[in-house]
Design a protein around this nucleic acid. Sequence first.
DNA 1: GGCCAGGAGAAAA
DNA 2: TTTTCTCATGGC
Length: 293
Amino acid sequence: MKIICNDKQNVIRIENIDNFNLEQTLLCGQCFRWKKISDNTFRGVVANKLIDTEQISDNIIEIRNVDKKFFDDVLFHYFDLGTDYQSIMDKLVAKDDVVKSSIEFGNGIRILRQDYFEIMMSFIISANNNIPRISKSVDMISEKFGTWIANVDGEDYYAFPTPEQLAHVTSEEFRKTSVGYRDKYLCDAVNAVRTGRIDLQGINGLPYEDIKNELLKVKGIGSKVADCVILYGYGYKSAFPVDTWMKKIINKYYCEDMTTPKQMLEFALEYFGEYAGVAQQYLFYYERESKDL
DNA sequence: GGCCAGGAGAAAA
DNA sequence: TTTTCTCATGGC
């Protein structure tokens, strides 16, 4: 991987990068705030900055509107550029033909490391919901309560609000962002952070079981949502969210008679091992997208 | 008009 | 402790 900085134009160019497809990574359901604005370009807000990023070729990506400092301080970590995905892929491909097919189908998904608070709120909204609506609600919450970032091409962009900005938002106000009955869960999550019932920064690095138990203290966070936060926020690559799609996949390809999510989680952790979460993301993408072929 | 979405909490068994 | 019911919302 080679990183070329052009601070005069605020462009970062990443060359010779393997396993990084923007569309698969940004629209695969692990994040909700990136928009496709042309064939190969995506626009999104990361840490109070509006960023454009373009897939120049399979191995070249350009990031615009960022200087070297922001790239080093934030984006390198956000895009998980310090991780050797090729070695992870090699290990997973050897598991079985289902994983192998999934990885050959979507061989450019990276697991982002997103803001803890934003990802927690987003996945509380995700419960019994669908991706377009989750995205819509997260955008509405940002627009109503977050800090304005920029107006580009006639459109306003906002940062996801901080816990302080949401401190006095009522459930009725959350309800107006079409989150449905999850409104009160969002209030509780904000309250949990502000009172210190959960320390989102402090729990980073705890053993999987411990960090999960901390997250489960928040109303609206069950096993699946906790695993999403642990995987897409804290970057634990063994965390394995069992959603409706993963249930289908496990029943279809692995264990026909398995019924409970708890069983499935135990099976997945044992079978897929330290990169279970990565396997999960590829299986999820494959099962959802390959139907269109 | 019922079913489904990246489920969770509360009630009931 | 483990199953069953209910919970907004919108697209199909």
